[in-house]
């Protein structure tokens, strides 16, 4: 009960796995910087009836004190009481229509100008944000920039180890990828809106250029193409070196398996996808080469400076 009043950082989790990881990393960075506990607000996933996205961070070794889906965390009785109260309210007055669906988050109702931050209108990187934040804060946004959490890079590597079950065939495939000079090629596809601003599909020229560049830097590359669009990849991506097509899992629940495989590659040619971004970022290869497109990100400074931008 008293937890509600303590200092903390509440970060709102929304979107697919790539976005969720960025949001977690941001929250974790602030929680360490200010030495306050981290809360995750996952009410977004309660009724996502369109994309059926689900909360996926529980497949990782994350360290959050509370994962909020109801208004009063860790307090069964208070939650029950609130539900009962709402039922009585409804019964008492059949026309009594309030916003009953969402939990009324105390932190939102307490939020005032000092402690409510959104990811900046244009999702620009805002250096002052982390230092300005007071000790009790709600964060809502995408936070797609490494700069927010660069100091805690090593902690993040630890936190984002996968705890969910990894099937044996995936594990053996992973170690095979690790044993060769593997280059991950990520091709994103958007069946619904191909032409949206940040979600455009990269051209074949981009991949050709990137593959040439990487072939000149490493010996005997073996390309692994992660894509759902097998046909497009077979027609457009050609190389003298071996190519293996990997079809990712379509299910949201299994997204972590592909992240596992991608992060086992040694080098990367990624698309404008936060999901590929994290695959490349979490690779433990010290000499990794990452090639990423300049445009198509949701932030003004999305890429670490070591990465090659074309």
């Amino acid at each position: 009960m008293l937890k509600i009043f303590q200092n903390k950082v509440v970060i709102k989790i929304a979107g697919g796995l790539g976005n969720q990881l960025f949001q977690y990393a941001m929250g974790r960075a602030i929680s360490i910087e200010k030495n306050i506990p981290l809360w995750l607000d996952i009410s977004f996933f309660k009724n996502d009836s369109y994309y059926h996205r689900i909360y996926l961070l529980n497949q990782f070794h994350i360290k959050a004190e509370v994962v909020l889906i109801e208004a009063y965390p860790n307090n069964k009785y208070l939650n029950q009481f609130m539900k009962l109260k709402k039922k009585i309210d409804r019964y008492r007055d059949k026309k009594h229509r309030m916003f009953l669906d969402e939990p009324d988050f105390l932190d939102d109702s307490k939020a005032s100008m000092e402690n409510y931050f959104a990811g900046g209108p244009c999702h620009r990187f805002d250096a002052s944000l982390v230092s300005d934040i007071s000790s009790n804060v709600v964060l809502s946004g995408y936070w797609q920039s490494e700069k927010y959490f660069k100091p805690i890079r090593n902690i993040l590597f630890e936190d984002l180890t996968i705890t969910a079950n990894i099937p044996e065939n995936i594990q053996t495939f992973g170690s095979y990828i690790q044993s060769v000079n593997s280059v991950c090629i990520g091709i994103r596809q958007y069946s619904d809106f191909a032409a949206s601003a940040n979600h455009f599909k990269l051209t074949a020229e981009y991949y050709e250029k990137a593959m040439k560049l990487i072939s000149s830097k490493i010996e005997n590359p073996h390309f692994f193409i992660f894509t759902l669009e097998r046909q497009w990849a077979e027609e457009n991506i050609k190389s003298d070196f071996p190519i293996t097509l990997v079809t990712p899992n379509r299910l949201n629940e299994d997204a972590y398996l592909d992240l596992y495989l991608i992060s086992h590659c040694k080098h990367f040619i990624i698309a404008n996808s936060t999901y590929h971004w994290w695959g490349a970022y979490l690779s433990k290869n010290k000499e990794k080469i990452v090639i990423a497109p300049k445009q198509g990100w949701g932030n003004s400074e999305p890429l670490p400076h070591e990465w090659i931008k074309i």
Partner: peptide, 12 residues
């Protein structure tokens, strides 16, 4: 508009 506005309103 914050990034979840449309989705939250439509769902509601």
């Amino acid at each position: 508009s914050l990034h979840t506005r449309l989705e939250k309103q439509i769902n509601f």
